[in-house]
């Protein structure tokens, strides 16, 4: 279902409770009664077009952002993506870690197996960190620089050199499947790990892993469907404008 500005914010959550994490990242608090999306956004100083774009891309994998809605700034997108990264590192990863830690502590029969899982996740954590770090160090600054040149009446020639050295297409090509290891971890627990005594703990871990995996997939989709097309369009126009001169 397409989420529009007139829908009640409460209904958005009823429809798909995963949106809670998105609302959270926008700093929108619960308790909005029957207020529509637009009003809630206004109250929290959230750009409504951007909010709808993110939410719809998040809930519907077939959603294609509409051009006319892409009026918001790149800074909004990178800020949002940055919040998502923080959410992974400060909330989700520690959550998984503490569950695995609990499993190690409460298990006597196959401690060494659970320690294997722990090592595996440690590696994954590093991989995720490298991944988000690269985006923050390379992709976001590049995107912001492109936007700045695009909006400037007399863009500096240096942006051409910038584009020669990097382009948003490079990002798209090297954007690896960061969720692959999570997929493996889930399957190892579901299919191959001798079940520990405390199955409740194990189920909770799986639940968090599924959740994190889904969030990362949705996050990548936002990068690929919202950020990449926007920057690519600006790149093309910049190249054209410079060619004219």
């Amino acid at each position: 279902m397409l989420i529009s500005r007139n829908i009640k914010m409460a209904d958005v959550i009823h429809m798909n409770y995963f949106t809670l994490s998105v609302l959270n990242r926008f700093g929108i608090e619960l308790g909005f009664g029957d207020k529509p999306v637009e009003e809630v956004c206004k109250k929290h100083n959230v750009d409504i077009d951007f909010f709808l774009e993110i939410l719809n891309t998040f809930v519907d994998k077939d959603y294609f952002p509409k051009k006319h809605l892409q009026s918001f700034s790149v800074k909004l997108i990178t800020d949002y993506l940055q919040t998502t990264h923080d959410y992974y590192h400060k909330v989700k990863v520690p959550e998984v870690e503490s569950l695995i830690e609990n499993m190690v502590d409460s298990c006597y029969t196959q401690k060494e197996n659970i320690i294997l899982l722990k090592k595996f996740f440690d590696e994954y954590k590093q991989e995720l960190l490298n991944h988000t770090h690269r985006e923050e160090e390379v992709v976001f600054p590049y995107s912001l620089a492109i936007e700045e040149a695009y909006q400037s009446e007399t863009p500096d020639k240096s942006v051409i050199e910038l584009m020669n050295n990097y382009s948003i297409d490079i990002f798209q090509n090297e954007h690896d499947d960061i969720e692959e290891k999570l997929f493996d971890l889930k399957n190892i627990i579901i299919k191959y790990l001798p079940q520990p005594k405390d199955t409740g703990l194990c189920n909770r871990l799986l639940f968090v892993l599924f959740n994190l995996e889904q969030d990362i997939i949705d996050h990548s989709r936002i990068e690929e469907k919202v950020l990449v097309p926007k920057i690519r369009e600006m790149e093309e126009i910049l190249v054209k404008n410079f060619a004219k001169k």
């Binding site: 197996n113 294997l116 590696e123 997929f183 493996d184 190892i188 299919k191 191959y192």
Partner: peptide, 22 residues
């Protein structure tokens, strides 16, 4: 067949199934 894509994942499978020693 296993539903495991990465080398570290396959390694854990191999250990769990005693194909290699830890």
């Amino acid at each position: 067949k296993l539903g495991i894509k990465t080398v570290p994942g396959l390694t854990i499978y191999a250990i769990l199934n005693k194909i290699i020693d830890i």
